[in-house]
Design a protein around this nucleic acid. Structure first.
Lengths: 224, 224
DNA sequence: ACCTGAACACCGTTCAAGT
DNA sequence: ACCTGAACACCGTTCAAGT
């Protein structure tokens, strides 16, 4: 019944934290975090769920490791980069990583035991801002603002009840259907004259807002 | 054993959607969304879990109702308000509501069947922007930017691994503990010279970023 | 050292049945 | 009309036991 009893090889490559984590991330990417149960993960690795508890203290320990894998995917600014282009690139890289790993959005900021990639990331971003002329308090402002925007955008985009452009029309239609015409005229207008137009892509909003924020940061940096 | 068999009253006030929703929101506020199981909710209402399925199609239907209750708590701009003060007030009101109902953060934007309070909210915000001189595309930009920031800030604040100022020092300490000194100097600096200072409150970052964004929106509005 | 089996205390949901 | 009991297919985790 299990993978081991079939064929010649009785024992596969043994479990390691790294192999478990890679499989766990793939599973969560594909099926969502709710599909990542210890039992199913074990099954995918050809092992009983309980074997995982030999390598991880508990599910939270597993998630700590998964989050650090996501941080490791994000390219860091090189020292010497201009703060603005570095922050722009990094914002896009973080957003992309979150869109690849939607399950990670609420988890990236909450680690009590951040891994090395996590700490390297924060250290590098703060260093780039400080080198770009931001004092400590302003670097904190900038980091908070940028990360709130990045995480919020990814959260919003992934939670929108439609994925493709085709979906949009259908969903928008059925959202307003139960209500009398003319009850929400501004909603109707923006949906029909903007959102449902061909070529609309919510994803494009990201860089508009990002550049507006970077403009603002440039201004307060100059004023200090 | 059950509440009904004890004392005189055999049947309590019967279930209604409204009463179930109010109880569900309170439970989720207090114990988190994971503590909101159909069984526990039933128990709190003096009823078997299965009774809830008479009033709600499934758990998602329940959550649709809970989300609309949160939207209903958020005061809307009055028509005639200046766009900037209206957007500022509304951003603070949304952020406060999300901090009161942390379980709602990922759910507010994802309803395929938005309730009336949800639609009224969106309709009102878009209307205020349009009346303030934003054309359709710019109103869409502004709304996306503001909501990404608001939801992202609430998400980040609630996910930070510390709540109180006392926590901060302890958590910061233990985060860096497993690593060699001087490995993350910028992290150490900002933690010790800023975050761990008395009077630090991450919550105060919200209005700084909000005003920077509103300044930016004012500028692009003027340019159009 | 590394993994399993059985068990415990949970989930959401369906469905036939009760009042 | 409104609710219950039993059942199904799941969870995370513990612990003693196997190899």
């Amino acid at each position: 019944m299990s993978a081991q009893t079939k064929g010649g090889s009785r024992r596969r490559t043994p479990l390691t934290r790294g192999r478990v984590l890679k499989t766990a991330v793939r599973r969560a990417d594909e099926g969502g975090i709710d599909s990542l149960s210890m039992r199913k993960l074990g099954q995918e690795l050809g092992v009983e769920a309980m074997a995982l508890y030999y390598h991880f203290a508990n599910k939270d320990d597993l998630i700590d490791g998964m989050v650090d894998l996501v941080f490791a995917e994000i390219e860091l600014p090189h020292s010497g980069d201009q703060w603005r282009s570095a922050m722009r690139q990094r914002a896009i890289a973080v957003c992309d990583a979150l869109l690849r790993h939607r399950w990670a959005i609420g988890l990236m900021e909450s680690r009590r035991r951040p891994g090395p990639a996590n700490l390297r990331h924060h250290n590098s971003v703060i260093g780039t801002l400080r080198a770009g002329g931001f004092d400590i308090a302003m670097a904190a402002h900038a980091y908070s603002l940028l990360d709130s925007y990045i995480y919020g955008f990814a959260l919003t985009k992934l939670n929108l009840p439609f994925d493709t452009a085709d979906d949009v029309a259908e969903v928008a239609q059925s959202m307003l259907e139960p209500f009398p015409r003319d009850e929400y005229p501004n909603m109707v207008e923006i949906l029909t004259d903007h959102v449902m137009k061909p070529g609309y892509d919510y994803g494009e909003e990201f860089e508009y807002g990002l550049d507006l924020i970077l403009d603002g940061l440039e201004r307060v940096r100059g004023a200090a």
